[in-house]
């Protein structure tokens, strides 16, 4: 059995007063490419944010390669949802990618030419070298996502967390991103990706984590991603919604 680089124990988190995650327990093997799958509101993004301490946890522990988050920070790369930032911000694609290096550059220093070259190289890897000087609002959704991926690449992390990198992108971008994810995996990096498209799960990920407020199932895609497990993860939710509707009808009378 491969060594596990991420260990999550009894993690819980809430938004306002609603508990979104309860008793989340799992560990992730080094060099695996895991898809986090679950219905809307299952807490997929919250799980990533809570693990990275961008959202407060109510209880539980998370460690990365045996270290708490604070010490493991520099080995972790994060790709937020594309919609989480203001794309009208006055900056260009190359600059956004360079931001991935800000942590390494350190305080009171400006990015040097070496940093810019690194960033440019990452853009090139994502097939975006022609757009380096383009203002970011003038990029298409797929191009913006590639810029985000390039920014994660320059971070040269060991563990990556990506929040819906394939949401709303064109087919070419989806292929480009998947090529990079497989390459990261081949280089021994561990990648966790929030994913929404059930049809591509088996093709894209070697591990899958079925999430609905807690871990429903987790393991190798071939063993875990079964009809029954998926129905359990999603179906519970649908039944719950059905009941709610019924309830509304009854009170209406």
């Amino acid at each position: 059995m491969a060594e596990s680089v991420i260990k999550v124990k009894e993690l819980s988190a809430a938004y306002r007063k609603n508990t979104v995650l309860e008793n989340v327990d799992f560990s992730v093997e080094k060099g695996s490419l895991t898809g986090i799958v679950g219905p809307n509101g299952a807490g997929k993004s919250t799980l990533i944010k809570t693990m990275l301490q961008l959202h407060p946890s109510l209880s539980g522990t998370v460690d990365f390669m045996g270290l708490p988050f604070k010490q493991a920070k520099k080995y972790i790369g994060y790709v937020p949802q594309r919609g989480s930032v203001d794309w009208d911000f006055p900056t260009n694609a190359l600059d956004v990618v360079t931001m991935g290096l800000y942590g390494k550059i350190g305080w009171l220093k400006l990015p040097t030419r070496m940093h810019k070259e690194k960033a440019f190289h990452a853009l090139k890897k994502m097939g975006m070298e022609d757009y380096a000087d383009r203002q970011i609002s003038q990029l298409s959704g797929g191009q913006q996502q590639r810029v985000f991926l390039a920014r994660a690449l320059v971070q040269d992390a060991d563990i990556y967390f990506m929040d819906e990198p394939l949401a709303g992108v064109d087919a070419a971008t989806e292929r480009a991103i998947m090529t990079i994810l497989k390459e990261l995996k081949a280089n021994g990096k561990t990648v966790m990706v929030v994913h929404h498209d059930l049809q591509t799960v088996e093709e894209y990920f070697d591990h899958v984590l079925l999430l609905n407020r807690t871990v429903m199932n987790h393991g190798k895609t071939t063993e875990t991603f079964t009809k029954d497990n998926v129905a359990k993860t999603y179906g519970g939710n649908m039944r719950w919604m059905g009941e709610e509707k019924q309830y509304v009808v009854h009170t209406g009378k």
Binding site: Y78, V96, M99, W107
Partner: peptide
């Protein structure tokens, strides 16, 4: 001037900024 890049990244993408330790 002293914290130019920190102002830039915390204004543009606070989540990334926090995740890289700013």
């Amino acid at each position: 001037l002293a914290f130019y890049k920190e102002w830039k990244i915390t204004s543009f993408d606070p989540a990334l900024a926090a995740s890289i330790g700013i």
